[in-house]
Design a protein around this nucleic acid. Structure first.
Length: 665
DNA sequence: GTTAGGG
DNA sequence: CCCTAAC
């Protein structure tokens, strides 16, 4: 029999071998490949976000901050530039791509302190440090210069030939690339920057390329000519070990962030950015398919499907236009150069823009120093875990990016909406005052829609949080709780425990789960216990409110069978036999939506196996031996009586004299 | 859509 | 728990 799939390949003459359905199989079997491929938003945007953050940090910081470790020493600090040695010139990023090049070495600031704050002083674990390290390095080593969706040329305002200073050149660094991978080298941002520079060595196809002196002075000719540019231009495999380095922190982060996220936002490209709040610096890792925007259109957000009960995003397209003019004067101040910097917020998007007029012709050059990401409004209970908070932020960011971004132009506080006008017509010309020109990344209105009104905050998300799961070994979230006060005020996360509509947890007064006693719950105002209705209540399962997000859902969370469930299963199988799993399901697990008949079949399989091994070899929650005995007995019985085919079922195995009343039977 | 079995 | 083949 030739399957449909086979016929649909469209190859004439030759039929490729039967390949499992690509989306699911590939997802599982080639996770790393997927890591490389997921992409939607340009690296430029992320770069811009990071750079913007750096800019903000540097502009607001003084040299005194260095002692506090809050700012990369010398990074973006004019007064503390270190001259880059000659032989380090080649270490700069230089990514040539069909004539265009990208030079960049932006690195997000990593504030260990802030992370410590978030974790109640527990500090970053080694794994987290590793993760950060990799994020940072990965950012520099591959994410930024590649796969940019814009054909955009950004001329930085500074004279790049005037000096060769490199603001963050660490001294006495090692040339040993292997150091990069040493997780112990968590020497802070400076070290990381240094590492980035080293990494860049292996990316530079032109060793003698002119030195880029300052990160903010880079000339960006970003093009997406080659969507495989990363792979093609990676001249050395030395990057690869780093990239693929199995990193506990990395995997942990991925586990935490991406099990769902990987599919919620499957199109995000590798990128890092973090929310620019005082209270937290947050890195995210995005991976996406390497594809151009022109080819791979962003999947329109299907809000209900994407976020289901657990996640909502709404954008305000209107309310923020005037915010540009309401900015504090401080933010409107220009910098010392001939150009001006405007930090404005629009639709929750900040952009620090430099525009200047250098050329003599009619061209206008823009120095877009950075973009920000839309502001996040998140509310979270104090009893929520840091892990859940991170996840919520992650999802918020994911939603923003996935929803699509567009560039907005603001001139003198007004949005320039007419795309057809010329720059001159719009008042953007060399002779005009570009000090009031701003760019903004803003949510693409065509993609984001929802029941929310324009009264909403720029970005509001409501998430369910896995409160209990913070204590569950099955959930990789952090335990530490943080105080709301430690969060940036702009981060207001709503944590709706939509238990009422969530069938995942139905606490039973008879068999209350440990999860219900978790300390996280008392403050959960939205938590309304639901009387138990079925076997599900007896199962101690992680409360995973995000189990079914969308069609792209990741593998289901593991939900070990409780003893009660096992008993119900055994009972049903005793009566119905093996091979009638649908009936078993209907009989004993009718209301347990999370248990499919395949699950029951699988569980039976494992039960039989468990019963046949020695108790020392068994793992997980111990199943009472008598239950296992019944399993074996039923298994033996039904293997002999073969109930599967005959319509007339064999006399059910009668081991139990008084059958327990089965729910939903 | 179900069932069976490998992974 | 996932995936697939075979019904």
């Amino acid at each position: 029999m030739v399957s449909k799939k086979r016929q649909d390949y469209g190859f004439s003459g030759y039929r490729i071998p039967v390949i499992p359905r690509a989306p699911r199989s590939i997802r599982r079997r080639s996770p790393r490949k997927k890591l490389v491929e997921d992409s939607t938003i340009s690296a430029f945007e992320l770069l811009a976000a990071v750079a913007g953050k750096l800019l903000q940090e540097s502009e607001s910081s003084t040299s005194s901050n260095a002692a506090e470790g809050k700012v990369h020493p010398g990074f973006y600090r004019d007064g503390n530039k270190t001259r880059l040695p000659e032989n380090d010139k080649a270490l700069k990023f230089k990514h040539f791509d069909q004539g265009s090049c990208v030079e960049s070495a932006f690195v997000p600031e990593i504030s260990i302190q802030d992370h410590n704050n978030l974790s109640n002083g527990k500090g970053l674990s080694q794994a987290e440090n590793d993760s950060l390290l990799e994020h940072t390095s990965a950012l520099a080593s591959r994410d930024l210069p590649t796969n940019v969706d814009y054909d955009m040329k950004l001329e930085m305002c500074k004279d790049r030939s005037s000096d060769g200073t490199f603001p963050c050149k660490a001294e006495g660094r090692s040339d040993d690339v292997g150091d990069i991978y040493d997780p112990k080298m968590d020497d802070g941002p400076e070290q990381i920057v240094d590492e980035i520079e080293q990494l860049s060595l292996y990316r530079d196809p032109i060793p003698g390329a002119p030195l880029q002196k300052h990160r903010s002075d880079v000339k960006l000719g970003i093009r997406d000519d080659d969507e495989n540019s990363f792979g093609c231009n990676k001249p050395s495999t030395k990057i690869r070990p780093f990239r693929l380095q199995p990193c506990n922190g990395y995997h942990r982060t991925r586990k935490m962030l991406t099990s769902k996220y990987r599919k919620v936002a499957p199109k995000f490209k590798d990128r890092e950015f973090y929310n620019s709040s005082e209270g937290m610096k947050y890195f995210c890792r995005y991976r996406k398919n390497i594809c151009r925007r022109e080819r791979c259109h962003w999947a329109p957000i299907k809000k209900r499907k994407l976020f289901d009960h657990s996640f909502e995003v709404a954008y305000d397209q209107e309310a923020s236009s005037e915010s540009v003019s309401n900015l504090p004067e401080k933010e409107m101040k220009g910098d010392k150069s001939s150009s001006a910097t405007i930090l404005h917020k629009e639709n929750g998007v900040s952009a620090s823009v430099k525009a200047h007029q250098k050329s003599k012709d009619s061209k206008v050059k823009f120095n877009i120093k950075s973009f920000g990401v839309p502001e996040l409004q998140i509310e979270v209970l104090e009893t929520a875990t840091v892990g859940s908070l991170k996840r919520m932020v992650m999802e918020a960011v994911t939603a923003i990016l996935r929803s699509g971004l567009q560039v907005g132009v603001v001139l003198q506080g007004k949005k320039v909406r007419d795309d057809n006008r010329t720059l001159r017509q719009a008042g953007i010309s060399q002779s005009s005052n570009l000090d009031t020109l701003g760019f903004a990344l803003e949510p693409s209105s065509t993609h984001v829609s929802g029941p929310r009104t324009a009264k909403d905050l720029p970005l509001v998300l409501q998430c369910n949080a896995d409160l209990q799961s913070s204590r569950s070994p099955a959930s990789p979230y952090f335990d530490s709780c943080i105080s709301k006060a430690s969060l940036d005020p702009r981060l207001v996360m709503k944590l709706d425990n939509d238990i009422g509509s969530n069938h995942e947890l139905k606490p039973s007064p008879n068999a209350p789960t440990d999860a219900l006693k978790d300390e996280a719950l008392p403050d959960s105002k939205a938590l309304v216990p639901v009387p138990p209705t079925n076997m599900e209540a007896l199962a101690v399962v992680p409360f995973n409110s995000k189990r079914k997000h969308n069609e792209l859902s990741q593998r289901r969370t593991r939900r070990p069978f409780s003893v009660a469930e096992v008993e119900a299963l055994v009972e049903a199988v005793e009566k119905l036999g093996t091979g009638r799993w649908r009936n078993v399901k209907m009989r004993a697990f009718e209301d347990a939506d999370h248990r499919t008949y395949v699950d029951l079949k699988d569980k039976w399989k494992t039960l039989v196996h468990t019963a046949s091994i020695s108790p020392q070899q068994r793992r997980g929650e111990p199943v009472p031996q008598d239950l296992l005995n019944r399993v074996l007995a039923a298994h033996t019985y039904w293997s002999q009586h073969q109930p599967k085919h005959g319509k007339h079922q064999v006399e059910p195995l009668q081991i139990t004299d008084s059958p327990v009343e089965m729910v939903g039977a």
